[in-house]
Structures are given as structure tokens and as C-alpha cells.
Design a protein around this nucleic acid. Sequence first.
DNA 1: TATTGTTATACTCTATAACTATA
DNA 2: TATAGTTATAGAGTATAACAATA
Lengths: 161, 161
Amino acid sequence: MRGGNRRPRAVGGANGGAVGTDLGDLDGYIGFYLRIAQDASFRAFARTAHARNLKPGRFAALEVIARNPGIGQSELGRAIARDKSTVTPLIQELRERQLIRRHRNARDGRRAELFLTGAGRAYLSRIRRHARRHDGKLDRIVGADKAAFIGLLKRIADELA
Amino acid sequence: MRGGNRRPRAVGGANGGAVGTDLGDLDGYIGFYLRIAQDASFRAFARTAHARNLKPGRFAALEVIARNPGIGQSELGRAIARDKSTVTPLIQELRERQLIRRHRNARDGRRAELFLTGAGRAYLSRIRRHARRHDGKLDRIVGADKAAFIGLLKRIADELA
DNA sequence: TATTGTTATACTCTATAACTATA
DNA sequence: TATAGTTATAGAGTATAACAATA
């Protein structure tokens, strides 16, 4: 991996960067840069996604439903690390937009199974192009270490959970 | 770097993990795991920090003020990548808690200069211990690649800004 | 008793725009 | 005109707790 070892100054990021500012101990904190990087990535994605009427969190939900037809809401919540009460309004929005449909499981009446509609599939493949373009930028930055980089991010998520 | 190359299933994370769930394309997205990892890191920090009456964002502000006595609010905002209107209530809280003091610059009456109080310094060195313990977990996960890992996070922040 | 999903509610973080005061 | 900081306001994202229906 390249990079690292810069002077402990400034966050280049989101608003011009305060280049004369000494970040002190913060500079050695992985957590700090995790926040800074995630923030930049999220905003960059949101910028392009917004034009397509998409909130970043929705994209993950659509992908998971696409890959797991019939998934329940609580299950979806676990997959994207969100409470079921957070999932409810998200699902409502996607249903209102007719991107997904839902029906109750015949054998277990509690369970609401989620599926993409045709429109949902079409929409998803359109926004996937934007997602890939966005993540392509990240890929170029991270380069050959991508698998290892993602591996570390996963381990952070797993071990700090 | 170790890690990587797992099956594209589940997010181990924050709430038990939905191990049967296929994440599909999401699994290859750096942005997705950046969110998952940052979220886990933030929550873990917040858990311990909360007991010390500290919101995670405050810590970064205190560190920057400690390292840059007399820094202005807008400048602080640039350093931590937040708008000045976001900085205002943060500063108010820290002042109410007597952790920082502020005075106007004599030559430029617009400018509010920020300094830690004695109590602020004492408080900061206490919470630094918790921050270090938290980031120590991240250090152990990331291991020898820490500098390179942070380098990549910085580049992501810089290039996506 | 446990689980699925809903609702009511509240909290945190954040930004935009308009404002005051200074420069 | 431009900058520093404040205020009002709004929106996203999130969770907790209590609830109804079902298992």
C-alpha cells in the first residue's frame, strides 16, 4: 500500500482544508480518518445519487432485496446493520415508488416478504451504473490492495460490533 | 495486508449479522464497507465515550483546539470538515462545560479565538486514554499496515472532496 | 414467551440561508 | 464586498419503547 507518512496537518477534504491546522494526536487515529473518508465517500455518492432521486441507504436495501428475493424486513435490517424500526419507513418509501412489492408469507403471517418490481429492477440497474462509477474512483485510489483493504474494513466492523 | 476474500455474505457487524443474506454487488463496494466499518467504530467509541459524557465529534474539536490555541471557529470547522454553523453549538456546549474559553481578537473583532481551560486540558487527557484504548483496538486489527491504511483513507478523503 | 412489523417519539448530526458585526 | 460567527430552520438517519398480530 502506498500513502501514509504525511505531515500531521489538515484534512484535505470536504471544504478546502485548513492546511495550517495541526491535528495533533488525531492524526494517528484510524477512527478519525475512517470518519473523514467515509464522510467524503458518502457525500460524493450522495451528490450523484441525489440527481437520480436516491438516498444512499436505499441503494444498499435495493441490492440486498434484489439478491435475496423474499427477504423479511428484520432480516434486511440485520444485513445492513439497521434496526427494524429504521427499515419500516425505508420500505414504505420504496413501495410508494413502486420499486418493491411485498406480501405476507402464507405459513407465517408475521413475515413480510420483499421483492423488486420490474420497475425496481430497471431502476436498480440504472443506479448501479452510478454506484460503480463512484466505487470505481475508490478502486482507483485503493488500487491493487482492494481485497486487503476491504478485508480490514470488514474486520473492523466484525470485531468492534 | 491480511483479510479479504470471504464469501459475499452478511455483515458481521452491529446486530448479530444476517449470515444467510447475500450482499451481492455490495460486497465489492469499498464505499459500503467504509460505511459499515465507520459505523461500528463510531458506535464503539460512543459507547465508552458516553460514560464520560462525551460525544465523539467533541473529542476531535478538543484535540484540534489543544494543538492550535487561538484557532477560530471557521478554521476549526475546516480542520474537522464541518460547516461553521455546525461548529457554533459545539463550541457553546464546550464553553458551558468550561472546557474551553474564547476571546475576541483585539485587531480583528470578528475573530473568536479558542483555548482550552485547565479543566479542558485535564478532561482531554482523561478522554484521550479512552480514545487511545479505542483506537488501540483498531490498531491491533489493522496491524503493521496502519500507516498505509491511514494513507489510503486520507487519499479517499482528499480525492473525493 | 418470542418474533415480525408498526408507530410514536426523540435525539444527533448536519447544512443552507439570512442575519449582525466587523473588515 | 468579504469574512467570522449566530440563529432559525429543516432534513436525514437513527434508535428505544410500547404495541398488535402471529407463532
